[in-house]
Structures are given as C-alpha cells and as structure tokens.
Amino acid sequence: MTDLTQSPQFGDRLKRFLKDYYIYLVLILVVVVLSTANLDKFPLFERGNFLSERNIINILRVSAPILTLAGAFTLLMISGYIDLSVGSAMSLSAVVYALLAINGVPFVPAFLATVLVGVLLGAINGFLVIRLKITPVIATLITLSLYKGIALLLVEDGVSAIKSGGGLKMPGWFNDYGRDGVFFGLPWAFWVAILVTIAMIVAQDRMKLGKYAAATGGNPMAAKLSGIDTARTVIILYVLVGICAALAGIARSSFMSLGDPLSGDGMELTAILVVLLGGTAFSGGEGRVLKSFIGALIIMSLTVGMLTLVPAYFQTLVVGTALLLAAASNHLVSRKDSES
C-alpha cells in the first residue's frame, strides 16, 4: 500500500522534474542546436547566428498566429473537446479583415468586427457540439469546410486573395499590425499574442473557467454532480478559440498584406501539435497554457530554423513526424502516471 508520509525516491523526483520542465529543456536544446548549426545557407539569417536580434524578431513575427491560438486551444482540449475548424476560422477572419480594410473601414472597427466574426464562428461550433450533439470531430470538420468555403466565396472569382488591385488598394496601415515593431522591434500582433496568452494563463489559474475546463475533461460526471454547467463551459471555450482564431487571422493577414482564404490551412494540425507537445492529454483534464506557448515557440523555431538547414519541402514531413512523436510520448507519460 502506498504511504503518503513516505518521501519520494530520487528517481521519482527526477521523473517529476522532467515531466514538469522537459518542455523548457527542449526549447533550450532547439535554440542551442540552431545557434551552433551552420545557418548561412539561407538569407534570412546572418551567418551562424540564430540568436541575432533580426532573426528572433523574424521568428516571433511569423509565430504570432499560433502563439495567439495555443492558449485557448489548450483550454478547449483540457475540457476534452477539439476544434478542427480553427484553420478555416482563421482564413475566414483574415479574408473578412482584409475585405473591410480594403473597402476603407479604419483599423479599429475592422479589428473589432473581425473579432466579432470569431465569436460567431466559435459559437456555431459550440452550438453544433453541445446543442445538436454532433461529435466534436465531425461538427468541426463540417465547419472547417463551411468557413473555408465562405472565405473562398468572399474572394472574387479569378483572384486568389483579397489584395490591392482592380481599383482597390490596401490602406497603408494594413501592414503595421503584423510587421511594424512597437516595443523591442516586435509588432502589435506579437504583443496581442502575449496578452492573450497571459489572459489564458489567468483564466486557467485564477478563474472558474480554467478549473471547470479541467473538471469537465477530467471527470464530467463529478463536474455535473458539483453543479457545474459543463455545456456552458464548453461553449465559452469554443467561443474563446473562435476569438483567438480571428486574432490569428488578423495577424496573418496583416503580416502577408493580403486576405488569403487558404492562409489558415493546416493550422488545426499545428495547434494540435503544439498542444500535445506541451503535454496536454488528449483524454482531457490535463495541460498547461504556458507549456503550449513554449511548444509553439519550439515548433516555430524548428520550422523556421530548419529552413536554413534543409529545403522547405521537408516541412510537412517534420511536422507530421513531430505530431506522431508528441502523441506517442504524451501517451507513454500519461500511461505511466495512471499505472503508478
């Protein structure tokens, strides 16, 4: 029988330590490897200097969308649900935002309107899953197709994206949000990602929402018996993911200076990848917003850093392999936990 007064063995403590801090170790490892590797094959980086200011700013700028998304997505997965439509929601938001901007709507209203679109998209997901009781995977596959379809429809025939041309011109400010450095050379999009992440950490640790998400994913029956409205919790989480997808879409759209209806393709995979990498259990209940954020940094450093070592066409392979490895290690860790 286990005795609670017994002090944990050194091995257990090491295991515990690794489990809690491995993600930071991996980040350090990735940074060290990329800093010492020969990076002069690619013009993005100065010779042999991964940690140059220019490079760090570059990576953080392109990472803004996934950094924005990781936190809310983590909370949703902790509650035991999934959203495969985030990529499409992001594309649709990017298109809406660009469409508003190109038609003369100023920054703030365009920004707010797009966020509202995000609320709507998340609410639709929540409605399908909770009220119509469609399995989360299928419900969000439907909206994956739907949101992407609408994004494509919003772009005129014969044009690939919303961009300057045909008498309309993107306003000058359009780029600023995603590209222009405001603090430490980093653009608003990045700082919004940081704010969102802090908000999600607060939601997880200091608000009922985070606790109820964990209870809903960990033991739904216990949550219900304790009087928690699990349906409401899940709908709120879907809406949060929708908002973050909209923010990610704005960031991407601003960075690329266009509203591309395919710009979010594959984002759901990246989101699942970083969340699993951060140790969130796919069975629900467990996970940390901050670790997913670190996971996103790792993946972005890897993918961007990798471009300097191997050609771009290695990217899909690496991401796919990483996803499988993350899923496998995640599983092994959680199994050990339940056995002990």
Binding site: K208, K211, A214, A215, G217, G218, N219, M221, A222, A223, L225, S226, G227, I228, G285, E286
Partner: peptide, 19 residues
Amino acid sequence: ELHVVDQLTVLENLTLGME
C-alpha cells in the same frame, strides 16, 4: 465510482462548484 477530478488538487476538488 469516485467522483473526484484527478487532475485537480485536493483543495480545488473540495471547493468544486462552490467557488
């Protein structure tokens, strides 16, 4: 069947739904 949430702390479980 126990109705506690494994992933939360003891205190969090004790206050669950009454916060």
